[in-house]
Design a protein around this nucleic acid. Sequence first.
RNA 1: GGAGAGGUGGCAGAGUGGUUGAAUGCGGCGGUCUCGAAAACCGUUGUGCGUUUGCGCGUACCGGGGGUUCGAAUCCCCCCCUCUCCGCCA
Length: 421
Amino acid sequence: MLDIKFVRENVDAVKETLKKRGVELSFDGFLGSEQKRREILLEVEDLRNRRNVVSREVGALKKDGRDASAQMDEMKGVGEKIKALDEELKLHEQQMQDFLLNVPNMLNESVPVGADEDANIEIRKWGEPGEFDFKPLNHWDIGERHDIIDFERATKIAGSRFSLLKGAGARLERALMNFMLDHNTEAGYIEVFPPILVNREAMTGTGQLPKFEEDLFRVADSDFFLIPTAEVPVTNIHAGEILKEDQLPLYYTAYTPCFRREAGSHGKDTRGLIRQHQFNKVEMVKFTRPEDSFDELEKLTANAEDILQQLGLPYRTVVLCSGDIGFSASKTYDIEVWLPGQGKYREISSCSNFEDFQARRAGIRFKREGQKKTEFVHTLNGSGLAIGRTMVAILENFQQADGSVVIPEVLRPYMGMDQIG
RNA sequence: GGAGAGGUGGCAGAGUGGUUGAAUGCGGCGGUCUCGAAAACCGUUGUGCGUUUGCGCGUACCGGGGGUUCGAAUCCCCCCCUCUCCGCCA
């Protein structure tokens, strides 16, 4: 959420950002309503003040055993008046809130302007796509061949966009999970295991609600939602808290399953593990001081990249353009891993700085040493990494002519084997 | 699911209609003392919003919402949550 004062004083800049993002949003009534809100507030607080003063008088008079009926009569109608104004005020405040909750974050000036992912800019590349002297298979073919991924039975159990991992496949999933958590823990992240069902408030705090409810699974007859990413419960760990400056920066890492409706992606990635309703991910979340957040974004991204380097998977890093970046983010790097089966780079991690956008929604603040006033922290998060897609990358990149798949060195202690097949 | 208890400041814990933003203790911060520290003593210590160049002032907040009243942490109604016991259960 943007600061209402900021929006009031920077309407043109906000409109410019909306344009860059390709978002249509009407400001009609916003400024007038905001003006009106403050006028009413002034009036109603004045009335309250009067009531408080007179009521105190009444108390003093009665204590002395004197008559206070004149004062009491004077205040008779004031309560009603306050109530009426309060109602009007609430209406305006609700309008402000509804509006602000649907305004996306401002963009960092380094974000390239563009309509869609074609305008994203590659800023780094690591490793070279391997040469194969045979036609590399898709991961689903490899999975089938070794009987480690079973899509048919998963469909029977749940439906499309679900998968059943078996044997070395299930083992690889678990190995990746543990390897990533260990990696991040060594990098200074605190491991947590949060609830994966969260309430509406938490979803609003990180920005999934109210705008993107159709992307989420909601549990029937309750107001619980299945998390689409660990970002939601982990960022909300400190919702409504005031942290001390010396607690920052705060790093967390969490493995969780993630659940997404994929409502708008019919026909995309219908085969394989790339786009699932349920997938596993290890996530990193940071809480930082405002002045540190962009340095921390670089470090966060580097940390995610390091996982790919240790696994020996070629990747490139792109900075998302204004039309492709998410609602809550100020700046985002996507890390894309090379997939020989598809012959292209695919997103495997998304690392974002949200600045104070989520912190304002969720009420995550901190106080500087010796300072009285509180400030919003900056929040960041990034995948480290999406586990299913990492499995895809390993199967496709390390497949051999004989059909076997070589397990990366760093995973072998976790896998208990050197190769699959 | 059944029965009961309870939700007050960072924590513990008073407060049942009139300067109570809230006693007291602990913790935190500042100071006195000390070579230094501990102890002791003194002082200080919530957040949001509005307003003001600033000091400040005003207002709201004692789980949430509504009601009674000149006035509510205190009375009434509804809701939520937590805890204990029983039942069930990984």
